[in-house]
Design a protein around this nucleic acid. Sequence first.
DNA 1: ACGGTAGTGGACGCCGGCGTCCGTTTAGCT
DNA 2: AGCTAAACGGACGCCGGCGTCCACTACCGT
Lengths: 189, 189
Amino acid sequence: MTEQLTRNLRSDARDNRQRILDVARTMFATDGMDVPMREIARRAGVGPATLYRRFPTKEALATEAFAEQMDACQVIVDEGLADPDPWRGLCQVIEQLCELHARDRGYTTAFTTAFPHAVDLAAKRRTALASLADLTLRARDTGHLRPDFVLDDLILILMANGGLHATSTDARVAASRRFAALAIRAFRA
Amino acid sequence: MTEQLTRNLRSDARDNRQRILDVARTMFATDGMDVPMREIARRAGVGPATLYRRFPTKEALATEAFAEQMDACQVIVDEGLADPDPWRGLCQVIEQLCELHARDRGYTTAFTTAFPHAVDLAAKRRTALASLADLTLRARDTGHLRPDFVLDDLILILMANGGLHATSTDARVAASRRFAALAIRAFRA
DNA sequence: ACGGTAGTGGACGCCGGCGTCCGTTTAGCT
DNA sequence: AGCTAAACGGACGCCGGCGTCCACTACCGT
């Protein structure tokens, strides 16, 4: 349905829409969620009206902007599931999710706070979590994962990972890596 | 010097000042750092002008408001140092610092972001960290703590602990407890 | 009790972000 | 090329927080 709307748009409108999304993604990633809508519009080279016409609310914009990241998330989880060694798969999932969240400030908050009306995002989030639950069960069976581990522990870690602040993205990613390593250590049987 | 100023204040002024600090503390704790100054003034039963006269900037207000928490922080660390078993002392420090931060949203951000001009706060922060470094060294000597542990790991954990969000304070404290337990597990040799 | 002064708070103007309207521009079809 | 509807963006009014000024109030020494 989104694609139909996109197709029916006039060419210049579609270009603008795309540029807005690109700008929004990078700005949300670097500056977090509280960037002014005007600023996104300005950098995208459009007027505020255009931005608001395409995305009536910041939530709508964020939902679209993060769809890609959401898919990346799912891909990470799927790759973890595909690994023949569930424990190794789980470790990689933890590492990569942490890094993804560290690279994208906005997505982190969007993922954890989960806007009330972003059904699409929430749904994908749920399926990703379901996959994760599956993976943890299998990893636990290998004996490498602590037997009393629960999915909530992983969510806890991801949420905590979001609290890692730093001036630069690189520093944040570095911190996130160390943190993931600590988390894995804590989860090992 | 703060005490001299306090003494020289007229009785009603001193009362107002105290009420402002009390209100600020609780509001910072429950609602975080972004509460409007007006709202603090309103709840304290004073006008905005009074608030601004006593505390020209929000930073000044926060510094005073958190002085108490800062001391609590130091007390926790000192108690950990006093414990005959350094490893147990360190564990208790981790648990209690996490809980303290979970109970007070505002203090967490104040502690980690460390306002540029809050020299007083920064200084206390430094001495607390120095004590912590001492404690970790001693704990490491007991053999219970991982040999490659560094102070930064602890700071990392505290910062991550600040990322734990929840609707209620109780939920946040509960999450924080579980998180502290995980962290300790990760630090154990 | 009363005068002087420290203290107060309502009211004001400023700023920055928000969301919308409307005159102008431009894509796309014939 | 010319026309029409879609799309654009500058400009506007609104709101909420900020920090300050000044006429009024109340504490405290005499």
